[in-house]
């Protein structure tokens, strides 16, 4: 019997927002099939559930406009790759409105990644198969979170409702099934500290057993907040181990490597004076054939990377 999943939490706060907060939820193809993986309450336009046209760039602007009127919209973008079209007015207007004019423009951007179509070994191709939070990472004014667990989703939503910023919620469909929390891991005398993001956290869980068999002890700091990137006190204590670990650290991201992963590794290296590596999508175009795809690092790829780090450090 499953407990409350992340999917349940998303659906619950969305429904409450529409029914009790005069909230609004917008996006494309929300109601026709699957209600975006059953994370969206089965309500109507009269309830504030709004189907937009397929004009992505305009849709992003329309969502910003609803935010400007104070409705705290939830804006659902079904594939994170679509952010290349949806982001312009969010990062150039909603993110700046408070600083430019003193007018907050809060919207909750649910940006969804998926890989394997829920089935291992399946490809997703060049648009839909990964996080794209790097697009927003380089621009000021939009906090970014990548929740996976039910409590994390609730925490990100609570943050949104108690602040007046637009929030980029970098989701991965694999997270919707999760009905458990994922604690950080502290190993005495750890060899390496891992900083996984989004769905790669689930892959790290899979990788840990084999790494243990190989005799590699890993600390794991699960990153929820990507921006601002600020470790809490407990996480800082774990990260302190970077200073003494033999092999430093590894940031593992579900977006392309030249973005969040390298940015965070840079910050960590400066702060803890230790080598921190980055792993993310490879610097190449993804294709649709499974062997041509370019997806978030698998447990196998994570293990391989850690072995490389160990080998190069010995």
């Amino acid at each position: 019997m499953m407990g409350e999943t992340s999917r349940d939490v998303i659906k619950r706060f969305s429904e409450n927002h529409l029914k009790n907060n005069n909230g609004i939820l917008l996006g494309q193809c929300l109601t026709a099939v699957g209600w975006v993986g059953h994370t969206i309450p089965e309500l109507t336009e009269n309830d504030g559930l709004v189907e937009l046209s397929m004009a992505d760039v305009a849709g992003g602007g329309i969502a910003v406009g609803t935010a400007l009127s104070g409705r705290r919209p939830i804006y659902v973008v079904r594939y994170q790759g679509f952010q290349w079209f949806n982001a312009p007015m969010i990062v150039n207007y909603a993110a700046k409105s408070k600083d430019m004019w003193g007018i907050p423009c809060p919207l909750f951007i649910r940006s969804i990644a998926m890989d394997s179509s829920g089935r291992k070994g399946r490809a997703m191709g060049p648009v839909a198969g990964n996080n794209h939070h790097g697009i927003y990472f380089r621009m000021p004014g939009v906090p970014i979170a990548a929740p996976i667990t039910p409590k994390e989703y609730q925490a990100v939503w609570d943050y949104f409702m108690s602040h007046d910023d637009p929030i980029y919620c970098s989701e991965h469909r694999r997270g919707w099934e999760v009905d458990f929390e994922i604690p950080d891991i502290v190993e005495k005398g750890a060899d390496i500290t891992l900083f996984p993001i989004s769905s790669t956290r689930l892959n790290v869980i899979e990788a840990l057993a084999e790494l243990k068999e190989l005799g590699i002890k890993c600390n794991v700091i699960n990153l929820l907040w990507i921006k601002p990137f600020k470790l809490n006190n407990k996480e800082r204590r774990i990260a302190e181990s970077l200073k003494n670990s033999k092999f430093g650290g590894l940031v593992i991201d579900g977006d392309y490597i030249n973005g969040v992963a390298k940015g965070m590794a840079y910050d960590l290296m400066h702060e803890y004076n230790s080598k921190v590596y980055a792993l993310g999508l490879e610097e190449r175009t993804a294709g649709f054939a499974p062997e041509k795809d370019n997806l978030p690092p698998t447990s196998k790829q994570i293990i391989t990377k850690i072995k490389e780090i160990v080998k190069s450090s010995l």
């Binding site: 336009e45 329309i62 910003v64 150039n92």
Partner: peptide, 24 residues
């Protein structure tokens, strides 16, 4: 009167969204 972000034409979708929200 709402501010403009300097990118041509963005006031149109943003204004449309604002109107939709105000008039729903």
């Amino acid at each position: 009167m709402y501010g403009h972000d300097g990118l041509m034409g963005t006031q149109v979708p943003i204004g449309v969204g604002h109107s939709y929200s105000q008039n729903y």
